[in-house]
């Protein structure tokens, strides 16, 4: 599946997109909380230092400042690691950004267990759950570096609050370099008839790998890239499970409150088909290499294959 594909970090393409936005749009400002080198907002700083705002290690203040800038006509991108971007300043985001629906883009890097060696304190596994719960908030988890670039450009054009999450590590691209991105639109990456695999973030690549493995077992899997987790493309979920009759979700996030929950909320209102969720199971992570952690916490293509077989076996049973 990864043959001929490059391994790229999403945050590098976020940085590239910000640098392009610096040239393209004079109203974009970027806020950093002492992590510009890691989040790659340093690329924007190089391109437009007069519109780069260093707030220091003060995420709550960063959100308030971003809100004030947005209220004054700026498109404010505020970036830090996912744990801090979502949890440290959740109530500030709620009051200052989501409630008045201000044009602030909270873009988090270092999300998911593949953050690796830094351990649980730095592995955001609940961020989509708490951001998704906020009214007016759009939640995006791009599938690869190319989609991260396209999504960054798309959210700059969207007038309203957005939370976008990305990983730290490099991983194989699955989209084309010139991929387009539309908020709220899922993409079917592979058609199939026996089971629907819905992924977000780097788990989309694992879904593709799983689909290939399932094909080897004579199982036809459809793969849906659900890079917008909120608003969920319910029509795409419906259309796919209407064909396949069962579903698996895969996310580098807790199974509580993220993509799996969003799909479950959709399915319980419409077609009650079997749903298996691949994600962390109400647990914190730990230090280790990304590969070791993905394996230990059940986030590999093999885990998706097993979940798919379980989901298929449940068809027709209440």
């Amino acid at each position: 599946m990864t043959d001929g594909r490059k391994s790229l970090a999403q945050r590098n393409y976020y940085g590239k997109a910000l640098a392009d936005l610096a040239a393209k749009r004079g109203d974009v400002v970027v806020l950093d909380a002492d992590l510009a080198g890691s989040t790659k907002t340093s690329d924007f700083k190089k391109a437009a230092p007069e519109r780069f705002v260093e707030v220091g290690i003060a995420e709550q203040n960063m959100i308030g400042i971003a809100a004030g800038l947005a209220a004054s006509g700026k498109v404010a991108f505020a970036s830090t690691f996912g744990v801090f971007a979502s949890g440290r300043c959740w109530e500030q985001i709620r009051l200052a950004v989501a409630y008045p629906r201000l044009n602030v883009k909270i873009v988090a890097t270092h999300c998911g267990i593949s953050v690796g060696e830094d351990g649980a304190s730095h592995q955001a596994l609940e961020d989509m759950a708490i951001m998704r719960a906020l009214p007016n908030m759009v939640v995006i988890s791009p599938a690869d570096a190319y989609e991260a670039y396209a999504a960054t450009m798309a959210i700059a054009d969207y007038d309203g609050p957005v939370y976008m999450r990305m990983g730290r590590a490099e991983f194989p691209t699955i989209m084309l370099e010139d991929v387009s991105f539309e908020i709220g639109k899922a993409k079917v990456l592979r058609e199939g008839s026996d089971v629907t695999l819905i992924g977000c973030g780097q788990m989309v690549a694992s879904c593709m790998e799983a689909a290939e493995a399932l094909a080897g077992k004579g199982i036809s899997a459809e793969v849906v890239n659900m890079s917008t987790v909120k608003p969920l493309d319910s029509a795409a979920v419906e259309a796919s499970v209407g064909k396949t009759g069962c579903c698996v979700t895969a996310e580098e996030h807790s199974v509580i409150g993220g993509l799996g929950s969003a799909v479950a909320e959709c399915l319980c209102r419409t077609s009650c088909v079997p749903l298996e969720m691949v994600g962390t199971k109400d647990t914190f992570g730990e230090s280790g290499t990304p590969a070791e952690l993905l394996s230990k916490y059940g986030l590999t293509a093999a885990d998706i294959v097993a979940a798919a077989e379980k989901s298929i076996a449940r068809k027709g049973k209440a």
């Binding site: 709550q60 308030g64 809100a67 004030g68 947005a70 209220a71 004054s72």
Partner: peptide, 21 residues
């Protein structure tokens, strides 16, 4: 100008407005 009510946040917002100016 801004939504407030949860204390401790207005000065940050005011900083953002002043910085934009």
């Amino acid at each position: 100008e801004m939504s407030t009510g949860s204390l401790g946040q207005g000065l940050s917002m005011a900083c953002g407005i002043a910085l934009a100016g």
